[in-house]
Design a protein around this nucleic acid. Structure first.
Length: 854
RNA sequence: GGCCCCAUGGCGGAAUUGGUAGACGCACACGACUUAAAAUCGUGAGUCUUCGGACGUCCCGGUUCGAGUCCGGGUGGGGCCACCA
């Protein structure tokens, strides 16, 4: 018996595929195309188990679709700009670029060890000037189209690091690295007008049928479309009017105050001179930006002393407050407060002793009063003059139409979505291609001067943006007037690069064009995109927006980037701690003689804790490189695809990988032991098959069919189970005659092809062992003979009063009479019937018999 | 607080979409091989049982000849968003 040498064999086949260019995609319109893409990795230095899961899943799809006759493109690249490179530069005194490219080299090697069917000829890195050049041009085109603009905005500013922080980098109101309290600062920043596409982005979600419902709902909520009313209030003794936005215009008669955001343009005008205004503003700003702080924050108000006229109540006026809970960047930055029907307004009114007027009552309770809390449920209008008795929806329509008639209000659609701020005060990103000129203002960099490249000689010894500190880089001349001017030193948010890379794979080496338009229109949208659900909103929304913006700037005629999306679950692992509570790596753990866990070196006892997402801080991580080198790629892939459905969390266990490894070896043994038996069998099928052979053939064809269904549904765990069922049958199959030999060979061939998406190296090796001259990767998915699938005899359950009492054998599609006779002839059934009268006889052919007895 | 998802043996999970619950695997037990262990192979197992059966898919109720699956109510767990008017 030969032993299966995993390392050698796997390396051998990877080389063969590589030398033959088996996975290099060509534009070929004679075949249906299939574009498989996994979210590209950030080159942090090493791949982690999440990557292994992501790329194993994608590879199953890519290899399967190739076998199914599709022209498959399955490329890989690197999301190479980002903060970690700068942090590494600071810590190790290295250039971010050098660090990044070194990491790419290391990770490419790791990925290649997985035997993925990737087209490496299309590899790209977003930090390459040949990549970001096109991105700069794209931004200029967006600018021309009015999709990019500058405005003042409030940002999280770290006063120690001298930089803007993303919301995620603010922890408990402090900078994540400096620990300094974050300030809110107004900065002039670049924005992309994603809000222009709010309607289309929300509308086209409906068309993305092959996206998880969950992700579509998340995007829908994020965009947050709401129907409402904009309404202008006249202020007594003041020339301006206050415009408010509400989604509950029906409650207008319950309004008891109007409130403005503290940074509303009118705030200063109305209250600027008043005592205590400055203190009030300071108090509001002191409240942190963290969620916890906001939640605990008390409602604060400042009475401006002004009053507005109620649009329907002649002599009624409402006080105008400034309030800390009103957001300037949603709606109009002003509201009318209805304490009885909005909890925030209720809290505010209680605090400042404002009237609480109930105007909506639950059905059948017209005397209802919202006394302890706001009531936001269904009901009918009360205390509202001409609205009384109407439902909320009817009242909304009525109010909007009346106000539109008198011209003080207008029904509007509002979105929660904000424009995308893309400026970052960072070095390792794509420079924003603009020039600041004292005379001409903001001037785009001319096309022939692109790309604006990053300087190599940078230092990170001072906090803040190295581009600003660079002695010469920002000095340039104005393209319009020729005078001295300065470059923009901000770089783009790194979500910028990932918003269009899927198109760049269509001619990634071309420096002249961002992508080949014709080719991109052939390949896009991505038929199957796979990645973590954590990108459900940001990346996936930005990429959708970019695609539409590129379309409108004439780049390509595609509406949506990803027609199919799959979001995979996380990989978890048990945590380990020693007696001192120190976290330990799984590979530091051994099982002691008494069954308890001990430390591999110190032999001290160890406790196993919760199973949670792998994280470096809890040390519950395994290094894919260790796993790949000891178990090989096939076993690793098999394990990761085996038990858990891909959208759920996967618990990594050492015994699980071990089991997968055993199965790889077992499969090899099955083939090795059977090959000599079937060697001499002629290619042509025999005229007749034994029953035994027929059973195997049925299982073989059924398995091929099931596995293809399972893969198409992303039920990789089920596909593995089917494969194991077939191999179990093959293993126990006794060969007595030629037709059985023939069926055995067919089973082994089909099984190898079905194995290929999951364990490609082994499958290729077995294929060769069976004497095939061509490669398995170039072999088509097996043809399923539907005639073999149906058995002539079916086993079906016989129930008495809904409880299974026995099973009977019947010819397929047997008539009811025969079913009844066979069922009644059954001893167990007779016993259960106990001579009682059969009141009803139910027979569903090939499914079930059920008898109801009295 | 809002929106969404989930609940099946000791564990991960299957179940033809309303038709024999527990496929496939992990862990376990016993047996074979071995001086022994590992590896490998074989056998067993939802629970209780007076060995006739009875019960069983988080709990309560409903629809149905028949419910893990559908409907109503609850409990528990998870995810996303969150002062969005």
């Amino acid at each position: 018996m030969t032993r299966y040498n995993i390392q050698e064999t796997e390396a051998k086949w990877r080389k063969v595929w590589d030398d033959k260019g088996s996975f290099v995609a060509q534009d070929d319109t004679s075949k249906p195309k299939y574009y498989v893409l996994e979210m590209f990795p950030y080159p942090s230095g090493r791949i982690h188990v999440g990557h292994v899961r992501n790329y194993s899943l994608g590879d199953v799809v890519a290899r399967y679709k190739k076998a199914k006759g599709f022209n498959v493109m399955h490329p890989m690249g690197w999301d190479a700009f980002g903060l970690p490179a700068e942090n590494a530069a600071i810590e190790n005194n290295r250039h971010p670029g050098e660090w990044t490219y070194e990491n790419i080299g290391a990770m490419r090697k790791q990925l290649k060890a997985m035997g993925l069917s990737l087209d490496w000829s299309k590899e790209l890195a977003t930090c390459h000037p040949g990549y970001y050049k096109h991105e700069q041009k794209m931004f200029l085109d967006f600018y021309k189209k009015g999709l990019a603009y500058r405005k003042d905005s409030i940002v999280n500013w770290d006063p120690v690091e001298n930089t803007v922080l993303a919301n995620e980098q603010v922890v408990d109101g402090k900078g994540w690295r400096s620990g300094a309290p974050v300030e809110r600062r107004k900065l002039n920043q670049w924005f992309l007008k994603i809000t222009d596409y709010a309607e289309e982005l929300i509308d086209e979600l409906k068309k993305l049928e092959r996206w998880p419902e969950k992700v579509r709902i998340m995007q829908e909520n994020w965009i947050g479309k709401s129907q409402g009313l904009k309404l202008k209030f006249d202020i007594e003794d003041f020339e301006d009017r206050i415009e408010v936005y509400t989604t509950r215009p029906d409650t207008i008669f319950g309004a008891s105050f109007v409130a403005l955001a503290t940074d509303h343009p009118l705030a200063e005008k109305l209250a600027g001179e008043k005592d205590g205004f400055k203190d009030f503003k300071k108090q509001c700003e002191a409240i942190g930006t963290s969620e916890a702080a906001i939640e605990q924050a008390e409602k604060l108000g400042f009475d401006t002393g002004y009053r507005v006229k109620h649009p329907f109540l002649e002599n009624d006026t409402l006080p105008v407050y400034l309030a800390n809970f009103i957001l300037m960047d949603y709606g109009t930055g002003a509201i009318f407060g209805v304490p009885a029907h909005d909890q925030r307004d209720f809290d505010f009114a209680t605090k400042y002793n404002l009237p609480i007027k109930t105007v909506v009552a639950p059905e059948g309770d017209t005397d209802f009063k919202a006394e302890k809390a706001a009531y936001s449920g269904e009901g009918a209008l009360i205390n509202s003059q001409f609205l009384d008795g109407k439902t909320i929806d009817e009242a909304k329509v009525e109010i909007i139409s009346r106000l539109e008639k008198i011209g003080t209000g207008q029904g509007t659609t509002q979105y929660r979505l904000r424009d995308w701020g893309v400026s970052r005060q960072r070095y390792w990103g794509c420079p924003v291609p603009f020039i600041h000129c004292d005379a001409c203002g903001i001037v785009p960099v001319p096309d022939d001067q692109l790309p604006v490249t990053l300087p190599d000689d940078v230092s990170f010894d001072k906090p803040g943006n190295p581009l600003t500190h660079h002695p010469t880089w920002k000095n340039t001349t104005c393209p319009e007037c020729g005078k001295n001017a300065q470059r923009e030193t901000d770089t783009f948010d790194t979500f910028f690069e990932s918003s269009w890379y899927f198109a760049r794979y269509c001619d990634p080496r071309n420096e002249e064009i961002p992508f080949n338009k014709e080719s991109a229109e052939y390949w896009l949208g991505v038929d199957q995109y796979i990645g973590g659900v954590e990108h459900a909103v940001l990346h996936l929304l930005y990429a959708r927006f970019f695609t539409k913006a590129m379309r409108d700037c004439g780049y390509l005629n595609v509406d949506e980037p990803f027609t199919g999306l799959y979001t995979q679950g996380m990989v978890t692992h048990v945590t380990y701690q020693d007696d001192q509570g120190k976290w330990l790596f799984p590979k530091q753990i051994l099982e002691g003689h008494n069954g308890g866990l001990i430390h591999r070196d110190t032999k001290e006892p160890v406790t196993a804790g919760a199973t949670i997402k792998m994280s470096k801080s809890k040390k519950n991580v395994v290094d894919p490189e260790d796993i790949l080198s000891s178990y090989g790629a096939d076993a690793t892939r098999l394990f990761i695809l085996s038990d858990s459905p891909p959208d759920r969390d996967l618990e990594w266990t050492e015994s699980g990988v071990d089991g997968a490894w055993k199965y790889v070896n077992r499969l090899y043994r099955i083939y090795d032991e059977n090959l000599s038996l079937i060697e001499s069998i002629p290619k042509d099928a025999p005229d007749a098959f034994s029953d035994n052979a027929k059973d195997l053939r049925r299982k073989t064809h059924e398995t091929a069919l099931q596995i293809s269904k399972d893969i198409e549904d992303f039920h990789m765990n089920k596909a593995v189970a089917r494969l194991r069922e077939l191999s179990n049958m093959v293993e126990g199959f006794k060969i007595n005659e030629n037709s059985e030999k023939w069926a055995m060979r067919e089973a082994l061939e089909y099984m190898a092809i079905c194995m290929n998406p999951i364990m490609p190296h082994l499958a290729e090796e077995l294929w060769q062992m069976m004497g095939h001259e061509t490669l398995l990767v170039d072999t088509s998915w097996p043809v399923v003979d539907k005639n073999l699938l149906q058995t002539t005899v079916v086993t079906l359950a016989v129930q008495v009063n809904g409880k299974v009492k026995s099973t009977i054998m019947l010819p397929r599609d047997a008539a009811e009479k025969e079913a009844r006779e066979t069922a009644l002839a059954n001893e167990d059934v007779q016993k259960a019937l106990d001579n009682k009268e059969i009141r009803k006889f139910i027979y569903v052919p090939n499914r079930i018999v059920n008898m109801v007895v009295g």
